[in-house]
Computed example of a mutant assay.
Amino acid sequence: MVPEQNRIALLIDCDNVSHNSIEGVLEELAKYGMVNVRHAHGDWNSTSLSGWIGRLHPNAIRPMQQFAYTKGKNATDSAMIIDAMDLLYSKNVEAFALMTSDSDFTPLVMRILESGFPVYGFGEKKTPQPFVDACSVFIYTENLIEDEDSVGKTPVSQKKNRKALRGDTSLVRLLRVAVEQTAEDDGWAHMSRVGHYISNNSSFSAVNYGYKKLGDLIRATELFDIDMRNDGAAMYIRDSRSS
């Protein structure tokens, strides 16, 4: 029997995020569940959204029209917030994904989290930190744009090497604390428990560092001893400083 998947509502702020990464966003969300709601908000009379139009039908995304009634005011934000709250109270989804680079949605993220629903954020590198930090997981969309000759792979140029990873003090601290807090008496921590600890305490995603999986990133840092158990099915790690 196929396990039941979480139903995810993907809401896109087309005014503040590029269409080039939508396929990568959908592929990433497939790890967490089924995206049964796909709404793209914006003023479809605007020529600035022309790039999005060709991506709607192939990806089964429903355009949500919002006219710009007043110049200089972003009516799309309000419409998208109303849409999110309607979905929240409909009880037809178990998770939300917000594709935007606008920090104005930070209060919305916090409200959804208060209701017990995870929020997966996707935005460009210009996205303000408060929105990034508020999300359960946040991924920069630049890391999800693939070249035609590298389908299904993260471009090598995007991968941070050992030196760059070790130089990121926030990352190193996050990994070491996660291992320390989930380790058993012998100092070894199961990778799944490490991953759960990290997801519960930050918006971290290995994709932002150029790696598809947390385990691959940890290997690249060379900061931890690795022990593959159960015929390679279970990965355990330990801070190499304790060996």
Rank of each mutant, 00 (worst) to 15 (best):
G152R: 05
S21R: 02
I82C: 13
P155C: 09
N92P: 02
N36Q: 06
A68Q: 12
K163L: 11
R111N: 09
S199R: 15
V151I: 14
V25R: 05
E4K: 15
T70F: 03
R55G: 00
D227N: 15
V177N: 09
L108K: 04
F224G: 11
F204P: 11
G152D: 01
V93Y: 05
S240G: 00
A97K: 09
L214D: 03
A95V: 03
N16M: 03
Y209N: 03
V2C: 06
E28H: 12
F96C: 05
L49T: 04
P155V: 01
T154Y: 07
L223W: 01
G116D: 05
V194C: 07
V17C: 13
I81M: 12
P107W: 00
D239Y: 01
Y89R: 13
A60F: 08
D216H: 15
H57W: 04
R219C: 03
G42Q: 05
R241V: 12
N16L: 06
N45I: 00
S136W: 02
L214W: 07
S48R: 14
I53E: 14
W44T: 10
Y120F: 15
M85S: 06
L175C: 12
V151L: 14
Q181Y: 00
E222Y: 04
Y236P: 08
F131T: 02
F96Q: 03
F138R: 07
S46P: 03
Y197F: 15
M110S: 13
F131K: 09
L165S: 04
S101K: 08
E222R: 14
H57G: 02
S46W: 00
A206V: 05
L26Q: 08
N143K: 15
A234C: 07
K213H: 13
V172I: 15
T141H: 07
T141M: 05
P63M: 01
D147W: 00
